[in-house]
Design a protein around this nucleic acid. Structure first.
Length: 219
DNA sequence: ACCCAGGGTCATA
DNA sequence: TATGACCATGGG
């Protein structure tokens, strides 16, 4: 007898196929937060250029980012796109960190309080907040993104327009509250989305093809 | 030339 | 609640 493949089983498949992902690429918790904002709807390779600009300007610091002229900050952020928008969002995030007495103080707060705090920052939505919670603060949350919807809706395990919170809580209820697992799972989903599970279906050699009902019709 | 990328906000109905 | 416009660079 066969049953529908579970979230844990799919994780195992992805892990066997792609191996360890070693997320998040970032030296400090603050750099992870900056990267989380800069990567909004943006390819990571472009984010790395902006991060390199900040590092070479020795500006990878909340106090510096709120003090520097917005026009200067926008110049550093230019390669990651939306630089005017992201200048404001980054400054808003830094103001929140400073008003909260810095990252060490924040790291002692409960996950629920951190989450509502992050969501109160202009420019930080649910996905960015959860990415920061998981990868900067090491909290056991599942990060839902566009890849998650694409991959799991093709497996008939969710609807493409399912609400963010609904999807997140469903994942979390089916998985252990284990930070390393949740870390790897989201990273593997992104890896798989960049690999075989493209917007335009290209499911040959997909490690999940045998679970994909529509996979047979794809080239 | 076109589509896509590790989203979110705001105005409108 | 649910669409649509907008933000903007760079790779394939």
């Amino acid at each position: 007898m066969s049953s529908k493949p579970g979230f844990q089983h799919i994780f195992n498949r992805l892990q066997v196929r792609y191996g360890r992902q070693q997320w998040w690429p970032g030296d400090s918790a603050f750099e992870v937060m900056v990267g989380a904002v800069l990567t909004q709807n943006t390819a990571w390779v472009n984010v790395e250029r902006a991060l390199a600009n900040l590092r070479s300007a020795t500006a990878m610091d909340p106090q510096c980012l709120v003090s520097v002229a917005p026009k200067t900050l926008a110049t550093w952020l230019r390669p990651s796109g939306y630089f005017n928008v992201k200048t404001k969002r980054l400054r808003a995030l830094c103001r929140w960190v400073l008003d909260s007495h810095g990252l060490p103080a924040l790291s002692r707060e409960t996950t629920a309080l951190l989450r509502s705090g992050l969501l109160s920052v202009h420019g930080v939505g649910p996905e960015t907040a959860d990415a920061i919670l998981l990868y900067a603060f090491q909290r056991p949350v599942f990060v839902v993104d566009a890849y998650t919807r694409r991959i799991f809706s093709r497996l008939n395990l969710c609807e493409q327009n399912e609400e963010y919170e609904s999807l997140r809580l469903r994942f979390q209820s089916k998985l252990p509250q284990d930070v390393p697992l949740l870390n790897e799972y989201h990273a593997l989903i992104v890896r798989h989305g960049k690999g075989t599970c493209k917007p335009r279906p290209l499911c040959h050699k997909c490690c999940l093809a045998d679970m994909c009902p529509t996979g047979a019709a794809m080239i």
